[in-house]
Design a protein around this nucleic acid. Structure first.
Lengths: 210, 210
DNA sequence: AATATTTTTAATCATTTGATTAAAAATATT
DNA sequence: AATATTTTTAATCAAATGATTAAAAATATT
């Protein structure tokens, strides 16, 4: 009889192969549209091994979701926590980092947004962990900048929505945007590189006091 | 033996009840996560009636998807086709229309974006039908405005991505944005109303020549 | 080398799920 | 009213799917 969990410390390749296959398929197609048999095939392993290592499809999915979510949110959070950088610098850095990240992981945002809609409560605690102190830091930095007259008194919600929206939206709406504007794949990548410089400028004018 | 399709012209309530239930569930949860039995229950009808009226889950879904897609794209397209309005006026109108529309149909954008990723080819023709002439009109209006020195020479892709992104993104990322910024439901609605005025201003400064 | 433990496999189970069928009920037609 | 047609229902089917089992193979331990 197989034991429920592998006892040895040796993180063999099988477990990792399953996780990678699961990450790919879950991220691409979501939970319901992904079959455990597809994961097994993609990983090149026997179907039973999936349950041997992860107990159930749901448990495997939860692991993938959590890791995806962490990776997605870390970029923003991490950056805004830095001391000794101006708001401008943070914005520039976060946009540049994210565009590179999204170029490598184009399916991640849609996955996250879907799962967030389906499990709003489950991720609430996770968000708190990840961005709890970030919010405070960001808000105080905005307040100081506003008091110094460097920026107008924009609602932080607008800033976050615009900053993340301008950065992420082209990736999640890529098919329709390319179709509508007639942009090729190569042009798309070029345009994304342009946006590394443009978005901070756009955000800056939005923030400017007047 | 039941006939394949209802022959009478009388568009009874049963068919419509099924469609409405299907629209609600498909739009909320997507194709794979929606069970035909859930649709039947939501519609308050016998499961067999779904197949009696629509032949299969897939066929029913295709109908819903097409209608959803049309509704979603019409707003943009329709507006930009109008003659006798300036670019400014079009932008202001499209943003205002869309924010009202999204307030009523918050699940639509994520549904569309998901399905577009899953069926890029199937909707290609549909997009062409819907926005074929719109693109030409928009591009020429942009070109004229640029030649007259009224706007800078921004790539139309950036304009579309920013305009739609700024408008739509807050709705699809609503849970995470509210969580991160601590905004309540009421505040969210207020902020969306603010954006009706703000987004056109932001877009205008992006477009301004300099 | 012998034994114990872990990992892998093929076969199978139980449930879910989309779809069908045949009969009953409701409605329309003559 | 009698008959034909359409709509609805309950029962059932067949395939898909997540999960389990028992045995075999591989690996580790003594």
């Amino acid at each position: 009889m197989p034991k429920a969990k592998p006892v040895t410390v040796k993180e063999a390749s099988t477990e990792e192969k399953i996780k990678e296959a699961a990450r790919k398929l879950f991220t691409q197609k979501g939970f319901s549209a992904t079959r455990t048999r597809d994961i097994a095939e993609e990983a090149g392993i026997n179907l039973a091994l999936l349950n041997y290592y992860f107990r159930s499809k749901q448990k495997l999915f939860d692991i993938i979701m959590m890791e995806n979510f962490r990776q997605f949110i870390r970029g923003i959070s991490f950056n805004f926590l830095e001391q000794n950088t101006t708001l401008d610098q943070k914005i520039t850095k976060v946009v540049s980092m994210y565009i590179d990240f999204l170029t490598q992981n184009p399916d991640l945002p849609l996955f996250i947004l879907n799962e967030l809609r389906n499990n709003p409560e489950q991720l609430a605690s996770n968000i708190d962990d990840q961005v709890g102190s970030t919010r405070a830091k960001l808000f105080s930095q905005l307040k100081i900048a506003a008091e110094e007259g460097k920026i107008g008194d924009i609602n932080p919600f607008h800033l976050m929505a615009n900053l993340i929206g301008l950065t992420v939206f082209p990736f999640i709406a890529r098919p329709i945007l390319q179709k509508v504007t007639g942009v090729t794949d190569n042009q798309f990548n070029e345009l994304m590189q342009q946006r590394k410089q443009q978005i901070p400028l756009w955000i800056k004018t939005m923030l400017s006091p007047e």
